[in-house]
Design a protein around this nucleic acid. Structure first.
Lengths: 209, 209
DNA sequence: GTCTATAACTAGATAGAC
DNA sequence: GTCTATCTAGTTATAGAC
């Protein structure tokens, strides 16, 4: 296993758990059993390492998302909002095959990117992976044509918030559910619970101005 | 205006915008025009300063929330979920009288506390302000009695996520809305838009197991 | 209470031997 | 490609003069 790979494998988990600011290169390199200088040799800087960590997941995920969303847009029958959000489930779950706990790690990273680095992630995703966004908004428009662009803008951001925040604290929530309700859940169960919630939120009656 | 007050007034905004980790004491003291050593003299440590910042808001907010939620619980007519979430609106908006941009600053701080400091805020809120939680869950139970405790647990966490995340990025969202839709909005408008969303989410059909 | 000065430490990044 | 050693700059926190 290459040094580069070892660094990425340790960095994503640490970044997900403690944030980008909260994780030092020393922590990453010592856990990865590589030299401190290796990060700068292989990636150039901490910022580039962060980009590499995100890209590795997005490059795995975005083709899957694109094909799942394309299917919905091209299908002759109108999809429901549940269908649209459910299109994300399988590609996200498949990240667990890509890497252990890949799904929750990626979703936590997404949350970190949104809050830690003041708009960096928004820039990164919209410039590097614009197709996913276009396909997604088209799919939502097909499922709920009455929703105007402005209202959709807000509700999709609310949805992003729900998902990202839930996943950032998913480990804690799963622990609490285990203790309080004696249920052993995994990330897939959490996703199954959050989809009806966001679908109902997006489908909420439109407020008058 | 006392040194202590000046520090708190600068610290909350910086913490809200850049996170706890991302804000240094040097930044706070220089913006507040006080000496670097003043933080440690008045608060003891950075961690205690963070607690003081949060307490100042919560001590202002929690009595208002308690009385608004008590009203709902004691009223003879059954409240709707919209009523329950709307009970938060006025107390939150009133934070703008307490301090300029108080509402968004506080809600951003809430988000920071959840994600920056790995469960510290959860501990802080549930141990220091338990009444608000009890009253809130009781109010939701009255509004939607069919919702069992476990499902409510999940949906309230989803809601927390939606609110906190939305408010963390509310400034960015308001800017985008200005540019894309030529609408000048404020935090109150954002709250008015998010309430129907979360109310619909909590009211979503209960999934079968 | 407020200041300067500095201690004690940690961060990211790099030069140069191997 | 990997290492040690070190640089520079940042951090929190504190000691002691005023």
């Amino acid at each position: 296993m290459s040094t580069k790979h070892k660094i990425l494998d340790v960095a994503d988990v640490l970044f997900a758990n403690k944030g980008f600011n909260g994780t030092s290169l020393r922590e990453i390199t010592s856990q990865a059993n590589v030299n401190l200088a290796a990060v700068n040799y292989h990636f150039g800087s901490k910022k580039e390492l962060i980009k590499a960590v995100m890209s590795r997941y997005m490059d795995e995920l975005s083709p899957q998302l694109e094909s799942a969303l394309s299917l919905l847009c091209e299908s002759t029958k109108q999809p429901s909002l549940n269908d649209v959000f459910s299109a994300f489930t399988q590609p996200l779950i498949d990240l667990n095959c890509f890497k252990e706990n890949g799904t929750s790690t990626f979703l936590q990273l997404l949350g970190r990117g949104y809050t830690d680095s003041q708009g960096f992630l928004r820039w990164f995703l919209t410039t590097q992976y614009p197709n996913v966004f276009t396909l997604f908004t088209n799919a939502v428009k097909r499922a709920y044509p009455e929703l105007n662009t402005e209202e959709m803008f807000w509700r999709l951001h609310f949805t992003m918030g729900t998902i990202v925040f839930t996943m950032s604290s998913s480990e804690a929530l799963i622990d609490i559910a285990q203790n309080d309700f004696d249920k052993t859940l995994d990330i897939e169960d959490v996703i199954a619970r959050v989809i009806p919630y966001v679908a109902a939120g997006v489908a909420a009656p439109i407020i008058k101005e």
